[in-house]
Amino acid sequence: MVTIARWTQDGSVRTGFVHQDRCLALPEHYTPQDLFDAGLDATLELAARTVAAAPADAPTLEQVRLLAPLAPRTMRDFVTFEEHVEGVTATIDGISEVVEEWYEAPTFYFTNPHTVRATGETIPVPAGCHRMDLETEVAAVLGAVDGLTGTDLEAGQAHRMIFGYTILNDWSARDVQAREMKVRLGPCKGKDFASTLGPWIVTADELEHRHDAEGFLDLAMTAYVNDEPLGTDSLAHMGWPFAELVAYASQDSLVVPGDVLGSGTSGRGCLAELWGRNGALQPSPLHEGDRVRLVVEGIGEIENTVGARRHDRIPAAPARRRGRARTGAPTATAPTQL
């Protein structure tokens, strides 16, 4: 299997392919975005030529530090696992339910492509967070396809745009998020601080045989906290296959090479779901020094350590209560009589 990765060694950042645990670098000007723009077929041809010409002294994975495998153009994160929704809703309001609207169409939010982290990095707890959580996900990465503009796609077309897959940990500050959601706009600082992508991108052709008749990928997903298993699920338990997520994202909009679309959290793939099911903060929220490892069959694993909290409280000024008087508004005047 050949995967696409970014790494640093001796201060140099390179993009290339990982083959049999060796890192085969492309010329220095290459970035992952160049591969997405070229498309999957062209990338596979380039990978074959690179492997054939691999130098004997190519570094091993142990000799480099892996970086996040791409800098996403955008990041959409869906919520597609019914079991996850059941548990998390109980955390929010004490009632475990999946509302009918969830079944009608896939729901997503945009998260921050500028705070993507790599496997091996320390993830600091954001300001004001005392309920730090992980989220076990798989993400699809899009690539160019001749003749497709990325708008109003059908599912078959969208499937062709899926360049590859990577693991996603959508880190969450649950208490910060809960406060924000009461405003009824969506998560912001509770999700803004970090997402881990990695360890590399497995090209879509490598997993094509794992699709079932409806297009779902049957891959086991397991989360570990300090080497203790949190829960295991199958990616096939998504409510919609990835192709339908991409197609939905493209409706009245545009998806482009380098976009990332997350599956949402797998069943029993985060702490908040278990808090809802248990009616208590058990297992405990993540603390400084905890090691979080996500393992996805056919892709690999990522691991991060939880760091320190920046501030106990969110450093934000409260809103000014400015009143609602309209005394400064212009008043209508009668038209001038000629």
Score class of each variant (00 low, 15 high):
A236I: 05
E297Q: 15
R310G: 04
A280F: 01
G300L: 12
L294S: 10
G289V: 02
E244D: 15
G307D: 04
V260P: 03
V296T: 13
L281P: 09
R309I: 11
P283V: 02
S250E: 08
L271T: 10
L274P: 00
V296I: 15
I314Y: 10
L281D: 15
A272G: 10
V256P: 00
Y248Q: 14
G276P: 08
P285L: 06
I314R: 13
Y248V: 09
R268Y: 14
T265M: 07
Y248D: 14
L254D: 07
E301N: 09
M238K: 08
W240F: 12
I299P: 11
M238T: 06
N278L: 01
V246A: 12
Q251G: 01
T305P: 03
D312A: 12
G262Q: 05
L286E: 05
Q282V: 09
S284K: 14
E301S: 15
L294R: 08
W240C: 01
Y248K: 15
R268S: 13
A249M: 07
R277T: 12
L254N: 05
D259G: 03
R310E: 11
P283H: 01
T305M: 11
H311P: 00
C270D: 09
I302A: 08
G239T: 06
V256L: 15
N304D: 09
L281K: 05
A272Q: 13
V255C: 09
S266K: 00
A247R: 06
G262P: 06
E288P: 04
V292H: 03
F242D: 03
G300Q: 13
L281A: 14
N278R: 13
V296H: 06
V292W: 05
S263G: 03
E301F: 02
L235V: 01
G239I: 06
R268I: 09
D290R: 04
R277E: 15
G289L: 03
R268A: 14
G300F: 13
V295A: 12
V296M: 06
L274S: 13
L261I: 11
R309T: 11
D312S: 11
V292P: 03
L271D: 08
G289Y: 02
R310N: 04
N278K: 07
D252W: 04
H237P: 00
N278S: 09
E288C: 08
L271M: 11
A308L: 08
E301Q: 14
H237N: 15
I302G: 09
P257E: 07
H311W: 02
